[in-house]
Structure formats: C-alpha cells, structure tokens
C-alpha cells in the first residue's frame, strides 16, 4: 500500500460513515410523529450494537475461554486459575503487579501533592505546572525510551564512557555502574519510576484544583492561629482535599493495573519484571495460550472492580457530608 492508497482508504471509510449517519438523520428527520420508538432506536442502536458485539460478547467469551485449555478445545475447569496462583513464574508476576499497584499511586500522589502545594499561587505557577504535566502528553512508549536512556548501562571498562545519566552519576560519585533494568528485584522499582513520572502530573492537576477550592476563610483562620508550612498542609490542606486524594489514588491504581506499555518497551517482561497486563499479551499473542491469557484478563477485570467500588463509595460519602 502506498500513502495515496492509504489516504484513499481513510477517505472511503469516513465517507461511508458520514453516509450512514446522514441516512439515519435524514430518515428520522422525515418522521411525522415526535415521540416514536423508531427515532430513539435509530439514535442509540449504532452505539449499542457496537458495544454488544465489540465489548460485551468478547468479554463473556473471554470468561468462557478462561475455563478451557490453550487452544480452547478441551474444558479444564479451574486449572488456569490455579496455575496463576501456584506457578512460580506467575507468582513473580503477581508480586510485581502488587508492588506496582501499591507504589505507583502513593509516590505519584505524594509528589503531585507536594508540588501542587509548593507552586500554589507562585508567580510562575502555570509554567511550573506545565513542566510536570507534559509527560502525560507523551506516549508511554516514548516515556519508556526516554527513561531507558537514563538507565542505559555500559560495561565498566577503560575507555568506555557511560552514556546513561544515572550510571554516569554513579561513576562521578566513584561507584560502579549497574544494570538498572536487569538486576532483580530493584528493576521493577526503576520501571515504576517511569509510571510515577507520567502520573504525577495528573495527581498534581487534580489536587491543585482541589486546593484552590478550599474556602479562604478556613486557611485564613488557620493562619491567624499560627499554622504554617508543613503543619498547615497536614492539618488543613490534606483533610480539606481528602475526596480528591481518594479519587487520584484510586484512578492511578486502576491505570497502573492495566499498564503494559512500559514493561513491554523497557524489558519485554524479562528479568522478572512482568506484570499481569504484560503477561496477558505474552501468553495470548506470543505464546498462543488463549486459556491462560483469558484467565489473566479476567483476573485484571476482577482486580479493578473493588477499587472502582471503593472509589464510588468514597464519592458518595463525600457528597453526603
């Protein structure tokens, strides 16, 4: 396919789509009566059909396949599930996922909060925030490449200079350079740094808006009482923005559970760094084990639910207060 042909295909697809939409609007517009089930159907059916065929059916099918073997031929009961919780390689994957989901939200939220408080009402606030927020615009693949270069390792020999910033700093400090992405178990932490780097901007933006929404009489009263600096944050800011903090923590942990781009780009899951979302891809699309991959996808789904429920409950509480 040359570029011309590709753009042609795109134009065709869009034209096709515009045609269908136009037909729907035209037909509904012709209708005489105002309240008509057919009009409503024409409006919602495209969306409902797509969701039914493309999301609900596949999800049900995935759950079904999780009880079958790698080729979906014979029923194996709960074998895939017990494999996940007994196989030693899988246990490493679960351990890593747990570390990711615990560390990332806490670190990103903490840094985001500290930064939001520090730059609040500073003269260069907008620019200072943009600097932290920018990584959110970059793809996780791009972010991973940026950080792989920071971690880059060269063997410690004469005439070989380090090109990775972190190893060069170690050398300047008189230490040995190290394989940041290879040495377990710390390599997982170095991968998590990338996610924290990306997510801190999200945390900062939401928390900053919450901080600005604290009524000024509260902060002024606290100032009159002599509260400043860290104690001000501890006793006034944090309690006042508690709902926003919960939202940020839970949102980041949901995102972290599903993230796979970083692991895929930086280590490919080697050196004991795999997580559930990455293992899903490896099993399903590289090793062709549909059963195990489906089980991992279901596990991901099941892990997300309690966080969402907690999130919604906290919001309800916040609303009724």
């Amino acid at each position: 396919m040359d570029n011309f042909e590709k753009f042609g295909q795109m134009a065709l697809a869009i034209a096709l789509f515009v045609g269908v939409m136009g037909a729907i609007l035209l037909l509904v517009g012709r209708a005489k009566r105002r309240v008509d089930i057919w009009q409503s159907l024409a409006f919602v059916l495209p969306a409902l059909l797509l969701l039914g065929i493309g999301l609900i059916y596949p999800a049900v099918r995935t759950i079904y396949q999780s009880f079958f073997d790698r080729t979906s031929d014979s029923f194996v009961g709960l074998d895939n599930y017990s494999d996940i919780f007994t196989d030693s390689a899988m246990l490493v994957v679960l351990r890593n996922t747990a570390v990711w989901v615990i560390l990332t939200p806490i670190l990103a939220t903490f840094i985001g909060l500290v930064y939001a408080v520090l730059v609040d009402r500073a003269r260069i606030e907008a620019a200072a925030k943009a600097v932290i927020f920018l990584p959110m615009a970059i793809s996780l693949v791009g972010a991973s490449i940026i950080w792989r270069y920071v971690y880059e390792y060269r063997p410690d020999q004469q005439n070989i200079e380090q090109v990775g910033l972190l190893n060069q700093i170690l050398v300047w400090l008189g230490m040995e350079p190290r394989h940041f992405l290879v040495d377990t178990p710390l390599n997982t932490v170095f991968l998590i740094v990338v996610m924290v780097w990306v997510q801190a901007g999200f945390a900062m933006t939401v928390l900053s808006a919450a901080i600005k929404a604290i009524p000024s009489d509260i902060t002024e009263a606290a100032q009159l009482d002599g509260l400043t600096g860290v104690r001000m944050v501890r006793y006034i800011t944090v309690p006042s923005i508690r709902p926003a903090l919960v939202v940020v923590l839970t949102t980041i942990s949901i995102g972290t559970l599903k993230v796979f781009d970083i692991v895929r780009t930086m280590t490919g899951g080697q050196f004991d760094t795999s997580v559930v979302a990455n293992e899903f891809y490896t099993q399903g699309f590289q090793l062709g084990d549909t059963g195990l991959a489906s089980t991992l996808a279901v596990l991901l789904f099941v892990l997300v639910i309690p966080i969402v429920v907690y999130n919604v409950r906290q919001l309800r509480k916040a609303d009724y207060r």
Partner: peptide, 15 residues
C-alpha cells in the same frame, strides 16, 4: 453503558 467503562480492554481483545 456507563458500567462498561470499567472493563479492561484486555478482556475483549482475543475474541
């Protein structure tokens, strides 16, 4: 429809 937001993409990909 609203609840479908929580479904991770992974759950739908293979089918």
């Amino acid at each position: 429809v609203f609840a479908l937001q929580i479904v991770p993409l992974q759950v739908a990909l293979i089918p």
